[in-house]
Amino acid sequence: MKQKEFIIPFSGLKQGKHEFKYVIKNEFFESFEYDEFNSADVNLTVLLNKTSTMMELDFIASGSVNVNCDTTNEPYDQSVDSDIQLLVKFGEAFNNEDDEILILPHGEYEMNIAQYVYEMLVLAVPQKRVHPGIADGTLKSEALDKLEELQPKAKDEKENKEESDPRWDELKKLLTDK
């Protein structure tokens, strides 16, 4: 999928509402040299409301990306649901410093929304990726078994097993002898 599909030639559109639909696959993220996803299948709808002085865009995404769990490195499908709004105005010079307002120079006839789509979807995936099988106990993996084996023992178990050190006992008496 090339990013050119995300160029919207708005000058030929009548005033009013327009809808654009996209299916985002992993090739889209690869075009940004982003390789954190094993695969992607996200449906994107862009609603454009064009007026005489500006345009409002609503991006609505829903689908899933396949990522590796941070704990076990097991791949799983992470659901992705996100939406953002973008206001497009016209001015003297191009300005995209504001996340919610894009200013295009007078005379522009098209805009590329690929960067907004990319950022929205990458930010929709949780920073810490945990396989759902870890939470409900259904995932069986060598990594989880090893983590459980290396997990520190509970504090109560240690205290019951260890004999008290006579040197500390003498010091403890000082606390109680007043």
Rank of each mutant, 00 (worst) to 15 (best):
E33M: 14
Y34N: 08
N38Y: 15
V42G: 03
N43Q: 15
N43C: 11
N43P: 01
L44N: 12
V46H: 09
L48T: 05
L48W: 06
N49F: 14
N49V: 13
K50G: 12
T53P: 04
M55A: 04
E56Q: 06
E56K: 10
D58N: 09
F59N: 01
I60R: 12
A61T: 02
S62Y: 07
S64D: 10
V65L: 02
V65C: 00
V67Q: 11
N68Q: 14
N68M: 07
E74H: 02
E74R: 00
Q78V: 04
S79E: 14
S79K: 12
V80E: 06
V80G: 01
D83M: 07
I84P: 00
Q85L: 08
L86G: 04
L86F: 11
K89H: 08
F90E: 01
G91R: 10
D98V: 11
D99K: 15
E108L: 03
E108M: 14
I113G: 01
A114W: 00
Y116S: 02
Y118F: 15
E119R: 13
M120T: 00
V122I: 15
V122L: 11
A124R: 07
V125L: 01
H131K: 02
P132I: 04
D136T: 09
D136E: 15
D136V: 11
G137K: 11
G137R: 09
L139Y: 01
K140N: 14
A143G: 09
A143P: 10
L144N: 10
L144H: 08
D145C: 03
L147P: 08
L147M: 15
Q151L: 12
K153H: 05
A154K: 04
A154D: 14
